[in-house]
Design a protein around this nucleic acid. Structure first.
Length: 316
DNA sequence: CGGAGTAAAAGGCACTT
DNA sequence: AAGTGACTTTTACTCCG
């Protein structure tokens, strides 16, 4: 029992505080290539030497495959199951594991354990519902498992700090997922979370702030770069466009034109420009559809960027 | 249809009272 | 906590090639 609690503390620490980031572009989309024994950044392509980054204890799973391969006794600890995957039931019989009766002295203790478990069950039932909801949303948005883990963890913390009281638990679940996405540098917009959760984005935003302040979450503000991989893959553009878009964003960032603009809008615009420059033009409408940013916004940013970067664009 | 452009409404944020 | 104001984004629309 004690052992389990200890382990949980360690996991919390690792997941919350040690998300490895690319030293080049700050993205968290680092991928490990086990065959080559190297770690590379999916975002900017930088190869990070393995010994430069401390990935923590041996069991730190970097991706799903790795997590599956990791040899360990029993199923892996997870936060997405209400009992963290440790399913132990306390039976009703006063018998021990070999079927012998339990001494009266221990029987008292056993009774207390049963009572405790019943108590836990009622509060955990709502937890189960919330974790299921998180799982559902994460599945619909095809988010990686890590994100789901962190969202579940944040939700647990919210429960332990009594932040659910007086709030809709779907809202907290959505906010937790939103926070987890940002934590991992794979941000979703509030609109997207709204769509999948059915909770208004105002509420999600409000709850999100509560989570941030009460749980002391230090979340990096989303960079336009974080949106580029997803938008690009949804648009089916080549890697060339993708890299060009990143390049444009770096340029724009250097000139300090970022402040006050919505990251998703900048990402969408950069991709639009990149697609034209690479001769794989996507229409503003197409980009608008996958990014949830209006064509008008893309246009105004587009004009601004072209002017500031001194790009010459042939309309063809 | 794709895009440029515009006015007005709506939204979000920092700041004050 | 409500109000204000500067600013961004969206809505809805027209016009052009």
């Amino acid at each position: 029992m004690i052992e389990v609690v200890k382990k949980e503390k360690i996991i919390e620490k690792i997941i919350i505080e040690e998300v490895p980031r690319c030293p080049e572009c700050g993205s968290t989309s680092l991928k490990k290539d086990p065959a080559r024994g190297e770690i590379y950044c999916e975002n900017c392509g930088l190869v990070v030497e393995e010994n430069l980054i401390d990935f923590g204890p041996e069991w730190r799973a970097f991706d799903y495959e790795q997590q599956q391969k990791r040899s360990r006794i029993g199923p892996p600890l997870t936060f997405t199951k209400h009992d963290k995957g440790l399913s132990t039931e306390i039976g009703w019989e006063n018998k021990d594991f070999s079927g012998r009766p339990i001494s009266p002295k221990n029987r008292f203790q056993l009774r207390r354990m049963r009572k405790w478990q019943r108590l836990m069950e009622s509060s955990e039932r709502s937890l189960i519902g919330a974790l299921k909801e998180i799982h559902r949303m994460a599945s619909v948005m095809s988010l990686p498992r890590n994100v789901q883990e962190v969202a579940s963890l944040i939700y647990r913390k919210a429960v332990s700090k009594n932040l659910i009281w007086g709030r809709r638990k779907e809202g907290i679940a959505a906010a937790a997922l939103y926070a987890a996405c940002r934590q991992y540098g794979v941000p979703r917009t509030l609109n997207e979370i709204e769509e999948v959760s059915g909770v208004s984005r105002k509420i999600i935003g409000k709850y999100f702030r509560v989570l941030c302040s009460r749980l002391k979450l230090k979340l990096p503000s989303p960079s336009p770069r974080d949106y580029v991989p997803r938008f690009c893959s949804q648009l089916h553009v080549s890697r060339k466009v993708y890299l060009k878009a990143i390049e444009i964003i770096n340029e724009v960032e250097k000139k300090g034109l970022f402040v006050g603009k919505a990251p998703a809008g900048l990402a969408a615009t950069a991709i639009y420009i990149a697609s034209i420059l690479c001769g794989e033009k996507k229409t503003q409408k197409e980009i608008s559809n996958v990014s949830g940013v209006t064509e008008v916004t893309i246009r105004s940013h587009y004009k601004e960027m072209v002017r500031q970067l001194g790009l010459e664009i042939d309309i063809s």
